[in-house]
Structure formats: C-alpha cells, structure tokens
Design a binder for these strands. Structure first.
Length: 104
DNA sequence: CTTATGACTATGA
DNA sequence: TTCATAGCCATAA
C-alpha cells in the first residue's frame, strides 16, 4: 500500500527536531509538493498526534504564527509546548523563524 | 464523474 | 503595519 499524502506529511513533520518549527509550505516543499501547504494543514488535523509520532505542534504558518482556535489541550497549549522545547517566541506572539525555524 | 471544504501562501489595498 | 481576497491542490461526499 502506498503512503497517502497525509502520511508523507507526517513523515516530514516527524523529521523536525525539537526546539525547531517548520512552516506548512516548508513541509510541503520537502515532501515534494510546494503548492500543497493547505493539504499539509489537513494532514496535521488528521494526524494521530504527538502520541502517534507526529509533532504537529511544531508546524506553524509561514510568518511564524500559530493556529489559534485549534489546540491539543486548549488555547495557548501549542505555544507552551514549543516554549518548553526551547523555541524562541517574538513579543508579537509569533515564532522566531530566523532563530528557531527548521534549518538544516 | 463533479462539488465543497480547508491547522496555507502570496498579493493588493 | 493589518485586513481582505485569489489561487492552489488533496480529500471527502
């Protein structure tokens, strides 16, 4: 059985090390679909979660903002998890992609 | 087969 | 700077 688009997205997100965040477009680009950022977001929604090996909380918008209204345990929970891993946040409430962005 | 939806991104005002 | 709109494409019905 071939891995679905979602499973590939999960595989890429799974490669994101702790303390780093990747944008949906970044994940899509790595998986070979630079125009499928939205579908990556869909995959995160359908992801098994951190318990399933998919740190979807490390996936943020291209500008570093997080998805509000959708959290694992409650609002602000995603940000708390990232801060706990050492991700740098800006006073605007966005992630410092230039410092904690997923870069090899 | 077509239509509708959406955890996005880029662009314009 | 923020806000609004268009385009993009996989999945579900």
């Amino acid at each position: 059985m071939e891995p679905s688009f979602f499973e590939r997205a999960w595989d890429v997100v799974r490669q994101v090390p702790p303390g780093r965040v990747a944008s949906y477009g970044q994940v899509a680009l790595v998986m070979g679909a630079p125009r499928c950022a939205r579908q990556v977001g869909y995959a995160m929604h359908a992801s098994p979660g951190v318990a399933g090996g998919v740190p979807c909380h490390r996936v943020v918008f291209a500008d570093g903002s997080l998805c509000r209204g959708f959290a694992f345990g409650g609002p602000g929970e995603q940000r708390r998890m990232l801060e706990d891993e050492g991700v740098a946040f800006l006073p605007d409430g966005r992630v410092d992609l230039g410092m904690s962005g997923w870069e090899v």
